[in-house]
Computed example of a mutant assay.
Amino acid sequence: MIVAPLTDFGTYLKLHPLFERVEQALITLDFSNPGEKIYIENDKLIAIPSFNKGRNTGEALLESHDRYIDIQICLQGEETFGWADRQTCSSIVKPYNQEKDITFYNDEPSTYFTLKPNQFAIFFPNDCHAPLIGSGLIKKVVFKVKVESNLHNF
């Protein structure tokens, strides 16, 4: 997992060939339609704007993804995340859904952190994360970056 201000995103461009496209999309795309999937590179890079009311810690389940890296960028409000190393999560609530690339867990996060506007978090397949913890409206964009076969060992 990586957490940093958006101004530092360029530091991480070499972690994945499509991260540069994410940086370009942040400058050129409109994220004002929540729930709309914006296909930037077919299914290899997708942006999904999200406008949601924050929820309490008990409502936020840990989740993990096998095929995609999540880059979650806070646009407005404050969003707290729970985090746990996937290897420590064993209490599966909803088994892996291949279509949605998601598994849900009932394990407790080992830590929490909060993103403010213009900050981001990158979650790799070994990161379980519980998003949307907070109060009020949280506006964000989630970039789904497909993991390439030679990049599985994050």
Rank of each mutant, 00 (worst) to 15 (best):
M1W: 05
I2T: 14
P5L: 05
T7I: 13
T11C: 10
L13F: 05
P17Q: 07
L18V: 06
L18P: 07
R21C: 11
R21W: 05
Q24F: 00
L26D: 01
T28M: 01
L29P: 01
D30L: 04
D30Y: 05
F31R: 07
S32G: 01
N33V: 13
N33M: 11
P34G: 10
P34D: 10
G35Y: 13
G35A: 14
E36K: 14
N42R: 13
N42Y: 07
K44F: 11
L45S: 01
I48E: 01
P49R: 00
F51S: 03
K53L: 09
G54R: 07
G54I: 08
R55V: 15
G58S: 10
E59L: 14
E59S: 14
A60G: 14
A60I: 14
L61N: 09
S64E: 03
H65W: 05
H65P: 06
D66Q: 15
Y68S: 15
Y68T: 14
Q76G: 09
E79M: 06
D85W: 12
Q87R: 13
S90T: 15
S90V: 13
S90H: 15
I92F: 09
V93L: 04
P95K: 11
N97W: 03
Q98S: 15
Q98I: 12
Q98L: 09
E99Y: 02
E99M: 07
K100A: 15
I102L: 13
T103G: 06
N106K: 12
P109S: 05
T111V: 13
Y112H: 12
F113D: 07
T114Q: 15
L115Q: 12
K116Y: 13
K116R: 11
N118W: 03
I122L: 03
N126S: 11
N126D: 11
D127M: 04
H129L: 12
A130K: 00
I133C: 02
S135Q: 13
G136P: 02
I138L: 09
I138G: 00
K139T: 08
K139M: 08
V145T: 02
K146S: 00
K146E: 00
V147A: 07
V147D: 06
E148R: 09
S149N: 13
N150V: 05
N150S: 10
N150D: 15
L151N: 11
H152P: 00
N153C: 12
